[in-house]
Simulated scan of single mutants.
Amino acid sequence: MLHHISINQLLGTFILLSVSLGVIYFFFNGGETMYERFCQPCQDNMELEGTDLLTGEQVKECNDNKLWRDLTMQQGLNYDQPSVMKGRTDVNSVTNWNAPLVWEGTFDPVVIDAIYKKMDPRVAVVVFAVGKYTRFLKAFLESGEKFFLVDFRVTYYIFTDNETDVPPVKMGAGRRISVVTVPSANRWQDVVLGRMKWATITIDKQIRNEADYLFMMDIDSVFRYRFGAESLSQLSAVLHRGYYKTTRNHFPYERRRESTAYIPYEEGDYYYTAAVWGGYLEDMYKLVKYCYEQSQVDAENHIEAVWQEESHLNKYLLYNKPTKVLSSEYLWADYDQIPADIKVVRISQLVKNYAEVRPNGGH
C-alpha cells in the first residue's frame, strides 16, 4: 500500500513538473512579443515595478535594464577629482524627488561619457521635417554630428513628406539617417499632433528593434555645444526656457477640465518643453503613445489641448516623475537673451518667420 502511494505521488510530481516547465517555456518563448513590447534591451527578465498613477496600469521593467544604470568605467581614465564642498551655488541641481537637475558644472563630461560608452547604447533621434521645415534639416544634422553624443551610435529618424529634400550629410562612424515618409498636413497643429501618432507607429514597427534610447526633438534648431551622455536616463525632460523661473500658477498648463491634459493651478513641479525629451526606448514609447491616445480622446470630445502634445507631456510627467531633469541649456532659443545662469547653450531654436514656414500661416 505504501509502495503504491509512493509511485502515485512520484507520478503526480512528474506531471506537475512537466506542466510547469511547459508553461514556463511558453511564457518565455511563445510570449516573447509581450516582453519585447515592454522592454529593451532585455526581453525575458522583467519584474513588477508598481502602478502608473495616471492610467492605473501595472508598470514592468527589465532586470537587465540595470545594465543601463551601471556606473562602471574603464581603469586608467584621467579626470579631475570631484569635490563635496564646491559646485554650482546659483542654481538647484536636484529635484524634490531626488532626481538630478543637470546644469553645466554639475557633471564631468569625461566621466559620464566613459560610463555610457562602455554600455555602447544605440540612440534614436526622431525629428519631423514636413512641408517647408525640410530647410532646417542640413543645419540640424551637421551640428548634431559635431556636438550630439559624439562617438556614440546614433540614428536620425527623419519623418518627412518629401524625401528628396533630405540633404546628404556626412555621418560619423556608427551613425546614420533613416527616412520615414509621412503625409502632409494643412495645419501646424496637425503636424504637432501627428508626431505622436507616427512616432508611436514607427517605434512599434521599426525603431524598437534598432535603439535602446530615444529622443524626440524639433527640427528647427541647431546644436551649439556639447550635448552628451549626461542627458541619458530612463526618462529625461527639459525645463522650458520661458518658465523655469516662474511659479506653478503661471505655467501654461491646460486649465480646462474638459481636456485630458487638465492640471489644476495648485499642482505642478516644472514646465517641460516638448521640443526635446528622451529616455529608454520603452519608456519613451509609453509616453509618446500616451500623448497620442490622450489627444485622440480630446479630439473625440471636440477639444484640443492648449499646447497640443506639450500639454499632455506635462500632465504625464507631473504624475510620472522624470528620472533626470535637464536645464534650459538643453533647449534655448535665438530669440532670447542668455541669462547668467545659462553657462552654455547646447541646442537652440532658430529665428524664423512662422507665417512663412507653417502650412496655415502660423495660426
Score class of each variant (00 low, 15 high):
Y25I: 09
Q206N: 13
W188M: 15
E267V: 08
D64Y: 14
D336G: 01
Q9W: 15
D220P: 06
S348I: 02
S221K: 08
N78T: 12
S236P: 12
T273S: 12
D212I: 04
N92L: 11
V351N: 12
R358K: 14
D108G: 01
Y319N: 06
V351D: 11
R224P: 00
K86D: 02
T106P: 00
G174V: 03
V357M: 10
H312T: 05
A355P: 00
R175Y: 02
E254D: 09
K245D: 05
E163V: 03
E57R: 07
N301C: 04
I115A: 00
F128L: 07
V59R: 09
F140H: 04
Y25P: 00
R88H: 06
P339H: 08
N29G: 03
N63V: 15
S221T: 13
Q9E: 13
L101I: 01
T89F: 08
Q75S: 12
S93Q: 07
P41R: 06
D212R: 06
G362I: 03
L137Q: 11
L235F: 15
M34H: 07
G22K: 13
D269E: 14
A114T: 10
M171V: 01
K352Q: 14
D298E: 08
M85L: 15
N360V: 05
F107E: 00
T155R: 11
N249R: 02
F136E: 01
Y270L: 03
L287V: 13
A199V: 04
F251N: 02
F152L: 01
K324S: 09
D165I: 00
G31C: 08
K324G: 00
L350R: 10
R37A: 14
L281G: 04
H4E: 15
C291S: 03
